[in-house]
Nucleic acid binder design. Structure first.
Lengths: 233, 233
DNA sequence: AAGATGTATATGTATGAACATAATGACGTG
DNA sequence: CACGTCATTATGTTCATACATATACATCTT
């Protein structure tokens, strides 16, 4: 008697991945029930469940009670990317980090920002513009609105040691956000800030951050020319 | 005796989320062991494990054997975005989809593409340029290299009914890819294709798709001015 | 003091059993 | 035929138990 090999849920996942990849099970097909698979592969149903649940989370399978499990017809590929601190992003490239606050004042937000932040129309909010530098060269220019009602402690902060980005991450918990990626054509102001020519294409990230139902901050990051955001699946 | 309430793993997750959110457990803190939590909350350790595993996957907790579980110090926020078919993306906005193949020929890839695709230097590959239209207006311009060695069947395909994007998704399985997002300044060629002015900032997605260790295709998508990519967490 | 070895411990995984839940499909009623 | 009812069934969850595995920490060796 050879020693009984224990089947791990990862092994089950690989087996299922292979069968899908080799088109044994084609997109749209129902695959065998958990109980059948468990018996075939020689493991408990819970193990099969663990494996299939993971594949469903990854979007490769679709599962419905009573109906069964089928291979996703048009797998919507999902990519995931990390949103690091700007400091961490710069330092991870081995470059020297610095930031300087260009502007910090109370100001009435324009209507689009009011809407995004869900704040009343006649209340001023904190507006901060910051330039982040890598090895002394402009890296990204940040224009940020901060909800003073939600974060009163920010009133006494000058962001000299900690940038707005870093300060908020450290001080304020958040649980959700919207992200919009786009490209803009550099205006002369933006070109001046980033030391590039007006008219260059620049990568832009707009982000709105929430906590407990409130909008904490709304920020636009305009990156230096040639900036790339990378991810893989 | 009141009926015993069963504790679900979601309930455990919510409890833990709250304690983190309310800073009962601060970033960097160790949280109680699974066994202790299970006893405190009145459920099995497996249930706590299920809950904490999920939070660790979400990046909120860090777990290490023997060491224990701690609240992530600088939670790297991860956003996930879907990568739909171009047809689906256009039609989901209620617009009319169309595409037209501008160029289709065998060609020797430039060195950077050779490197990305991991193909020999002296072998020609299929090069296809396609314009995708929404309600008749240019939506995105695609320049694609297809690995003929990996996908010989593509030799007889003219991409009239199915665009390269759609054809490949339908015909070829894939299991990985690299994504690079950036912004470019429109050249006069690109401006002509997308009916915009030269010099406008354009959003660009470069993607390389793999299957079974081989690179299937490498593609650059140049989007129309004003295009936005959205996601939320 | 530096390095090798051993042990305790927290998380990770596997299992069988039981029950929960959703949803399909069959059946019966108006 | 339209519609509500109900049994069936596949996935979803909980539990107790057992064992696996990584690793922090103590202890022993040189």
């Amino acid at each position: 008697m050879s020693k009984q090999e224990r089947i791990s849920w990862q092994a089950v996942q690989n087996e299922v991945r292979q069968r899908i990849s080799q088109r044994d099970w084609k997109p749209g097909d129902f695959i065998p029930h958990e109980a059948d698979l468990a018996q075939e592969l020689g493991c408990a149903r819970a193990t099969v469940n663990r494996a299939l649940r993971g594949l469903a989370e990854a979007g490769l399978l679709e599962r419905r009670r009573r109906a069964g499990t089928r291979v996703t017809l048009n797998p919507v590929r999902r990519a995931e990317f990390a949103i690091p601190l700007i400091r961490a992003e710069i330092e991870s490239k081995g470059q020297r980090y610095a930031h300087s606050v260009c502007l910090r004042e109370m100001r009435l937000p324009p209507p689009d920002v009011q809407a995004r932040m869900q704040v009343p129309a006649n209340v001023t909010q904190l507006f901060v513009q910051t330039l982040y530098l890598a090895n002394g060269a402009p890296y990204v220019f940040e224009s940020r609105w901060i909800n003073m009602t939600a974060i009163p402690a920010v009133r006494d902060e000058d962001f000299a040691t900690f940038s707005p980005n870093e300060w908020l991450v450290r001080e304020v918990a958040f649980d959700g956000g919207d992200f919009t990626f786009s490209a803009i054509t550099a205006s002369s102001d933006e070109a001046a800030m980033l030391s590039c020519r007006a008219g260059e294409g620049l990568f832009v990230l707009d982000r709105t951050t929430r906590h407990a139902g409130q909008v904490i901050t709304s920020v636009r990051l305009v990156f230096h020319p040639g900036y790339q955001m990378h991810t893989r699946i």
